[in-house]
Nucleic acid binder design. Sequence first.
DNA 1: CAAGTGATTAGC
DNA 2: CTAATCACTTGC
Length: 151
Amino acid sequence: MEAYIGPQDPACHAYGHRRTARTEPLYGPPGTAYVYFTYGMHWCLNAVTEPPDYPAAVLIRALEPIAGLATMRRRRGKEPLCSGPARLCEALGVTGALNGVSLQRGVLRILEGTRPRNRDIVTGPRIGITQATNWPLRFYLKSSPWVSAAR
DNA sequence: CAAGTGATTAGC
DNA sequence: CTAATCACTTGC
């Protein structure tokens, strides 16, 4: 995942408190989905992280597909299934219809699971951005094949 | 490496 | 209104 840490982050969609129709969900409560459409064809899923009116979120870049593999394969049509922010949205069927919904209750939820040990979490520069390119706000598991396939 | 693709945004 | 940009993926 990658953090987009708010008004002072030039790579954040809400940089400088930019508040438009698109960025509105970022100003909602933590646990809100922020789903945006980019490059004319891809959806990307974020989870809002800060209290209302402080627009910050994390972009989900990869996950380990555990259940519903057949459905994911049908939606994606190819591998990898969930390595990459737009791939994972396609595999999970996430679209703009879920923009602004709660990720704590509803059809799309982020559950509390087994937390990785801190020493297994690695940081690095965020991918694919043109601003603040070397801020170490990408967090991932070094030994995870799913994130390595996410570039 | 470049193309595809269209919403979003800033700037007239 | 116009034009530039874009937190990506795929196929050369």
